[in-house]
């Protein structure tokens, strides 16, 4: 059972330094629920449009991706079968990826109606190609979905940072699995975690432009524990205020790619206090 906690959802997205130089839009997208912070369940989704010449509408593809993920998972949460967690896990793993892909393709089909160039090609979805990372946090479990590149990190009580979803060796160089490929639902990676004692302190979702901006994986993994320590010392509003600047610094000195980050963090209400710079209005989640 989860102790009394306050949950925060924070996100930001910056246009890549190379996108600015080349006049390209930000092709990432992010969505969060609830917004502003109002407790569990929390859903966060980020998506990275491919941006290649073939994927010339991928900024729209990433927007459709996060919107369909949110809509699908909200329905799933409303309909979940009580405390039958085996059933919840099975439905989530088997049905949600199919449903998200189906709805994403419906959105794309609607968007290309009237566009002769796209209506005539074999796979019009490539023009909208995008990845998808989604996390659902409830009082009892956490579910992570990942299709394509990018990173989901969890930070635990002992400051251990881990990637909850299994690695996909096909994601190498600039190639990625994607919503636009045939049977894309098969390529979703999945993790279901029951919350036994306490949930992770922080869950981070990021498009691949962020990890690619660090010299090595160790330097990137430190982001998770560092953000948590900043939240502890300065409060979540400090993160809200500075996240965009940090991401801009990363794209300029690093990958040059668009960078989008979503954060879900919890604080035990016992430990809440006034931060150095901000007085945080408290919302206390009181799960049964």
């Amino acid at each position: 059972m989860v102790a009394k906690m306050k949950w925060h959802v924070i996100s930001d997205s910056v246009r890549g330094a190379s996108h600015i130089r080349n006049g390209l839009p930000n092709q990432d997208a992010v969505i969060r629920h609830p917004d502003p912070d109002s407790g569990l369940p929390i859903i966060m989704a980020v998506s990275d449009g491919h941006g290649s010449r073939k994927s010339f509408r991928s900024d729209r593809g990433s927007k459709f991706a996060v919107e369909t993920a949110l809509e699908t998972i909200k329905e799933f949460v409303r309909c979940q079968p009580g405390d039958n967690f085996t059933g919840v896990k099975r439905i989530a793993e088997e049905q949600i990826p199919k449903e998200i892909v189906k709805r994403w393709k419906q959105r794309v089909r609607a968007d290309i109606r009237g566009c002769k160039d796209l209506e005539c090609v074999d796979n019009p979805f490539i023009a909208y190609g995008a990845t998808l990372l989604t996390v659902l946090v409830t009082e009892s479990f956490i579910i992570c979905f990942q299709l394509g590149d990018g990173d989901i990190l969890t930070v635990w009580e002992n400051d251990e940072v881990e990637r909850p979803v299994p690695k996909d060796d096909r994601l190498f160089a600039n190639e990625t699995t994607s919503l636009c490929t045939k049977e894309a639902w098969r390529d979703f990676r999945f993790r279901f975690q029951m919350i036994a004692d306490s949930p992770p302190k922080l869950i981070l979702l990021a498009t691949d432009g962020y990890a690619n901006s660090f010299r090595d994986d160790e330097s990137f993994m430190r982001v998770g524990s560092d953000i948590w320590h900043i939240i502890e010392s300065e409060g979540p509003d400090f993160i809200r205020k500075n996240l965009g600047n940090w991401l801009n610094e990363a794209t300029q000195a690093g990958s040059g790619d668009d960078i989008t980050v979503g954060l879900i963090c919890r604080q035990n209400t016992d430990n809440l206090r006034e931060y150095k710079h901000f007085r945080i209005p408290l919302w206390i989640a009181c799960p049964v």
Binding site: S213, F214, D216, D226, I227, I230, E249, G254
Partner: peptide, 13 residues
């Protein structure tokens, strides 16, 4: 004030 999170930034080789 805390530094930005994470280790050393680097361009891609």
């Amino acid at each position: 004030m805390p530094q930005r999170p994470g280790g050393e930034l680097a361009t891609r080789p």
